Amino acid sequence: MTARSTDTTQRGSAGKGPKKTGWQAYSDWANDHRKWLFAAPAMVFVGILIVFPLAWTLYLSLTDASGSVRAESDFIGLENYTEVLTDTQRFWPAVGRTFYFTIGALAIQMVLGMCIALLLWRPFKGEKFVRVVILLPLVATPVAVGMMWRLILDPNIGFANQLLGFFGLPGQPWLSSPETALTTLLFVDVWQWTPMVVLILLAGLTSLSDEPDEAARIDGATAWQRFWYVTLPLMMPTVIVAVLLRGIDALKTFDILYATKGKGGGSFNEVETLNIYAYGLSFDYMDYGVASAVLILFFMIIVACMWLVTFRRKGNK
């Protein structure tokens, strides 16, 4: 063996070092996986908080539980799901109202949010004051917002009809009419939650580089062309995040609807969404088995909507 090969072998053996055992080996392993070890307690805690309620609700949905969750109940399989899915009087209309409210509110909030975010994108005089004013609706709780708008839209003493009367226009039923109640509450939701969309989109706009917009400006592109072909494609990841957050939140809206219309979503169930329907089954009729089946189906709808949005995002890449 040559001196060079002997030297290489010795250096290789020295580099490996003695095999670590016991506490030192565990310490090195923990150091290599420290990000998972630090996050593990929180992940386990959140996992339990999610898995246990879902598993319990799924179990109740397969029983005839009613009156009290502690009372004895019998396993009835999918009978609750069959009853719910064949209910054309309450369940399917509630599904329709839920999607009408969610899609309508989300569409308006995204358009308004993008317009306001674009206006706030560039510095201007009084920018800080305008941003504070725009964020004011987020300060109040949804129940307080619902009660406030209930007073404003009251057909007799409400400010809204008084304002219409000042301009010579007839008063509107707003929340008291089954035809206008859900649409009115849709715009109340838009009023409160559009600032959240503005915050998300404005954060995305401020993170964009100015170079693509300047290049398009030099090439003679108009303001609309720069927005449609340059800014909006670059903003799509942020837009998808805003759609996911607000879409899921709008799907499960409860407080504003219940604070303004009460049990059953009104006398004619005019604003009864899936959340209101499940709440009534649970706390008004105490039919926990059917209510749990509604909630499981509602959960599946939310998961399906999230999957569709994320799948479309991946498909566009």
Rank of each mutant, 00 (worst) to 15 (best):
L185W: 08
L186C: 07
F187C: 06
F187Q: 09
F187I: 12
V188W: 11
V188S: 06
W191K: 02
W191V: 13
W191D: 09
Q192E: 07
Q192V: 08
W193P: 01
W193E: 00
W193T: 07
W193H: 12
W193N: 06
W193M: 10
T194E: 03
T194H: 04
P195Q: 03
V198N: 06
V198Q: 02
L199M: 12
L199H: 12
L201I: 02
L202H: 02
G204R: 00
G204P: 05
L205G: 04
L205F: 00
L205C: 03
L205P: 01
T206V: 06
T206D: 13
T206H: 15
S207A: 15
S207D: 12
S207F: 11
S207Y: 08
L208I: 01
S209Q: 05
D210A: 13
E211Y: 06
E211K: 15
E211I: 06
P212A: 01
P212I: 00
P212Q: 04
D213S: 14
D213W: 09
D213C: 10
E214G: 05
E214W: 01
E214I: 08
E214P: 03
A216S: 11
I218Y: 12
I218S: 14
I218K: 07
I218Q: 10
D219I: 03
G220V: 02
G220N: 02
G220K: 05
A221C: 04
T222H: 12
A223M: 03
A223K: 13
A223T: 14
W224A: 09
Q225I: 00
R226T: 11
R226N: 09
R226W: 13
R226H: 08
F227T: 09
W228E: 14
W228K: 15
W228V: 14
